[in-house]
Simulated assay, not measured.
Amino acid sequence: MIYPVVAYGDPILRKPTRFIEKDELDLKKLSDDMFETMYSANGVGLAAPQIGLNVRIFVVDATPFSEKEEDDEDEDVDLSLADFKKTFINPEILEESGKEWAFEEGCLSIPGIRGDVYRPEKLVIRYRDTDWNEYTEEYSGMAARIIQHEYDHLLGKLFVDYLPTLKKQLIKKRLSDIMKGNVDADYRMKFPGRK
């Protein structure tokens, strides 16, 4: 099932999520639906609040970052991202470390807006999978960044919160337009300012 993506301005995107109880949800179905929704919007990550659910789960598939464009011979390609497809249930970042580095981020809930966000290069995260197995793993580079971006959604934070004040002022009207549904997105969205 493909869910509409919740747009910027909806209160659910600012609400910290709650932990999921074992056997509370059909986690495999929810995970599959989240991947299907993410793929339909050409995303690399999707968190539950972005489909209107206040639970602690996100999915990631970084395959697009591992693929080399035919005309992009000079680009560095991270082959470790080729198999980085996971569901993170009840994740908790235990540690972040390393030098902060910038990368231009975007968000399916905020179409058409991008901005440089600085994040630590490494993290250690504990989470469960759809079979309720628990893992503690370390990630770095782009994998860590994708996790940090999606994890922020579970805390009620968005990438625009990290932007410098001037950049925030420059995008204020565009954010307001998104809230009203005055934006082009090539996937279904649910707007807080539109019935």
Rank of each mutant, 00 (worst) to 15 (best):
K167D: 13
A185W: 04
P164L: 03
L158Y: 04
F159R: 06
V183Y: 05
D177H: 03
M142Y: 04
D116G: 12
G156W: 03
L166M: 13
G115C: 02
P164N: 10
L163V: 01
T136Q: 15
Y139L: 15
L163S: 01
A143W: 07
D161W: 07
D161P: 12
I125V: 09
I147D: 00
V183K: 08
D161R: 10
L166V: 07
R194H: 01
S176D: 04
V160L: 10
K167I: 14
Q148N: 04
L166I: 10
A185M: 03
G193W: 01
K122V: 00
D116H: 14
I125P: 04
I147M: 11
R174P: 13
Y187R: 08
K167W: 11
Q169Y: 13
E137P: 15
W132N: 14
L166A: 09
D161Q: 12
A144G: 05
I146N: 02
R126K: 15
F159Y: 07
L158T: 09
L170D: 08
W132Y: 14
A144T: 11
G193F: 03
I125M: 11
S140I: 11
G181N: 04
R194S: 01
E137R: 15
R119L: 05
P164W: 10
D177L: 05
E134C: 00
V124H: 15
S140M: 08
E137Q: 15
R119K: 11
Y135E: 06
H149A: 06
L123N: 07
Q148L: 11
